[in-house]
Simulated scan of single mutants.
Amino acid sequence: MLTDSTAYFSINHPFDVYLSPWDSAKPLPSPEQLAMMLPTSLQLISDVNALESDCLIQLRHLDDEAKAVVEFLKLQSRKIDMVLQHVMAKEEYEGTRYNGSRFGGSGITLVSTAPIELGQMFQVTLHIKEELVALLCLAKVKSCTLLEADTQANSETTSEAKPAQYACELAFSVIQDSDVEQLVKASLSIQQKQLKLRKLAR
């Protein structure tokens, strides 16, 4: 479980997020109880990620002669990732879907067409396709800011303005340590990819 003083690096990147209001009359679950709430698909992804992480730690101790084995295991890992991405794409997650815009180990930011009440607690499902991250947690709305509206016409046939959009920041209240680790690794991985793209664009 995170505390108010917990702070992690975060990065701008699109992802899917699903919110279900948490009944304020119910106590918050512990991280262990949260793990028991995982649907089968999320539990599968969590287990696979944990196994891969353990395997990578062991591979670091292999010598150069084992490089062929390492490459073979990486290939198998990519195959498994492709299957899991298909599973994630087919999954119907509970809650209202929003477009996420920023994430890190301590919270997320999403875009909403209506303001979300400050302090509201939500059961949150995150789905970051590119990094094979799918997790369940509880988070509280920390801020909700109106983004600059685009009031120009969006086609030749209509003069209607686009709806207002709000950037809503949610801080994690209950989340498993392994999921925080996943988010931290994903944010660093995406940052590296973004830096490589910038270098290629120069």
Score class of each variant (00 low, 15 high):
Ser106Arg: 14
Phe103Asp: 00
Arg198Ala: 08
Gly107Lys: 12
Leu2His: 02
Gly95Lys: 00
Asn154Leu: 13
Ser10Thr: 08
Asp23Glu: 06
Arg97Asn: 02
Ile116Ala: 04
Thr3Asn: 00
Trp22Asp: 03
Gly104Val: 05
Leu34Pro: 04
Leu44Thr: 15
Ile57His: 08
His127Tyr: 07
Lys67Trp: 07
Gln43Ala: 11
Leu62Phe: 11
Glu130Ile: 05
Pro27Ile: 03
Ala89Ile: 04
Thr40Gly: 03
Arg202Ile: 11
Thr6Arg: 04
Asp81His: 15
Ser106Gly: 09
Val87Phe: 13
Lys90Tyr: 06
Lys129Asp: 05
Leu73His: 08
Leu38Glu: 03
Met37Lys: 00
Leu147Cys: 12
Glu65Trp: 10
Gly105Leu: 14
Cys137Thr: 05
Leu62Trp: 01
Val174Glu: 00
Leu118His: 01
Met1Tyr: 15
Leu73Thr: 07
Ile116Gln: 07
Asp47Ala: 12
Val133Asp: 06
Gln192Phe: 13
Glu169Lys: 10
Asp47Phe: 15
Ala114His: 02
Leu197Asn: 03
Glu52Met: 07
Thr157Gln: 07
Ser187Asp: 15
Val111Glu: 02
Ile128Arg: 06
Phe103Asn: 00
Glu71Asn: 10
Ser77Pro: 00
Gln58Leu: 07
Lys142Ala: 11
Lys129Val: 12
Leu138Ser: 04
Val180Gly: 04
Met1Ile: 15
Asp63Ser: 09
Cys168Lys: 02
Ile108Trp: 01
Gln194Phe: 15
Met82Gln: 08
Thr113Gly: 12
Glu160Trp: 13
Leu170Val: 01
Ile108Val: 10
Gln176Arg: 02
Asp179Ser: 00
Asn99Trp: 08
Ala25Arg: 12
Leu75Asp: 10
Ala50Asp: 13
Gly105Glu: 11
Leu59Pro: 09
Gln85Met: 03
Phe103Gln: 00
Ser10Val: 14
Met36Phe: 05
Glu117Asp: 10
Leu28Trp: 03
Lys162Ile: 07
Pro163Asp: 07
Leu38Lys: 00
Pro21Asp: 04
Thr113Asn: 13
Arg102Val: 01
Ala114Ser: 01
Lys74Gly: 01
Ile11Met: 14
Val111Leu: 05
Leu135Lys: 03
Leu147His: 14
Glu131Ile: 14
Ala201Glu: 13
Ile128Trp: 05
Leu28Lys: 01
Ser41Cys: 07
Ile128Tyr: 06
Val70Ile: 15
Val124Asp: 01
Thr157Lys: 14
Gln85Val: 05
Arg78Ala: 09
Gln120Cys: 09
Gln43His: 10
Pro29Ile: 08
Cys144Pro: 03
Lys74Val: 07
Lys129Ser: 14
Val87Gly: 05
Lys162Phe: 10
